[in-house]
Simulated assay, not measured.
Amino acid sequence: MKLKASTATQRKVAQATAIASLAFLAAACAQAPRETFDLTTETGVLRSVALRSGPAVFVPEPAAIAPTSSDRIVIRAGDDSVAVLPGVQWSESMPRLFQRRLIEALQKCGLSASSNFGGQSVLQTDVRRFEIDVARNLAVIEVSVQLVESGGGRAKAAQIFVEETPAPGHIGSPAAQALGETAARIALRIGQWTRARL
């Protein structure tokens, strides 16, 4: 009888140990740091534009909805469903990163752009897509832009910009690099468009 109790006890201890080990592994995996990327600017895109001082433009943080509004890299499947790449992230929320690239591009286009409130004009942006389209092997960014008077709030001009870049790699660094190049190009187009209307 004692032998049976001892065997049952050993079995319970072994099960408890196995469960504890699995829980520890799951916790370790859950807490593993994600690989982090920034929206690197393709300097060749912006280098051809001279830096000048010009009209002041306030650039607030772009609007976006989840998961695009987060710090995760978004992918879109062939059935139009969206998901995020596991194990990777942006260095901060995507709208904040893109805001910085917009400001940089506007400054390169000769505008005194800033994230500080002020200036005669406000560049309002709504990021509708900022993702890797897996079915088409493309990095896709779509941004709705509106140039507004800072005083009365009257819209001066509006435009929707779409930029696509080949993205054969759908994970980690290749995906981040493709989105970085796409962001640099669309930011430059928005900067040139804004400059032409001020």
Rank of each mutant, 00 (worst) to 15 (best):
E42R: 07
L22I: 00
I75M: 05
A32Y: 11
P67I: 04
I73V: 14
R47G: 05
P33H: 01
L85K: 10
D38H: 09
W90C: 06
G87R: 10
L46P: 08
R34Y: 07
G44A: 01
I65N: 15
L51Y: 15
V57A: 07
A26D: 04
S70H: 13
L46N: 12
E42V: 09
E92Y: 07
P33S: 00
A26F: 05
V59E: 05
T36I: 05
A83E: 08
L22A: 10
S70Y: 14
L39W: 03
M94C: 03
R76P: 11
S81T: 12
S81Q: 09
V45W: 08
Q31I: 03
P55C: 04
I75D: 01
F37N: 05
A32M: 05
R34K: 09
G78C: 10
A23I: 07
V57Q: 00
L85V: 12
G44Q: 01
R76T: 08
D80L: 09
A64C: 13
V84G: 00
S69V: 11
A56F: 02
T41G: 12
C29S: 01
E61D: 06
A27L: 00
S91N: 11
D71L: 00
G54C: 08
L51D: 14
E35Y: 05
V57L: 01
W90M: 04
I65A: 15
I65V: 14
T36S: 05
E42A: 05
T68P: 05
S53Q: 15
A28W: 08
P86V: 02
L51S: 14
D80T: 11
S81D: 05
S91M: 07
S69Y: 04
Q89I: 00
V82Y: 03
P95W: 03
A66N: 13
A66P: 12
T41P: 14
T43S: 14
R52K: 13
G78Y: 06
R47M: 12
T41S: 15
W90D: 11
T68F: 14
A26N: 10
D71T: 08
P60H: 09
V49L: 12
R72V: 00
D79Y: 06
I65L: 07
F58K: 00
L25K: 13
S48D: 10
D71H: 11
T68L: 08
V57H: 02
S93M: 11
L51E: 12
Q31D: 02
S69G: 08
V57E: 02
V82E: 00
P95F: 01
I75R: 03
M94W: 10
P86T: 06
F37C: 11
I65M: 13
L39D: 04
F24A: 10
W90R: 10
F58W: 06
A56Y: 00
G44N: 08
E42I: 07
T40E: 07
T36D: 03
T68R: 06
I73S: 04
C29A: 07
R76W: 03
F24L: 09
I73P: 14
L46G: 10
I73F: 03
A63M: 13
V45Y: 11
V49T: 09
A83D: 10
A64Q: 02
L22K: 00
A66L: 12
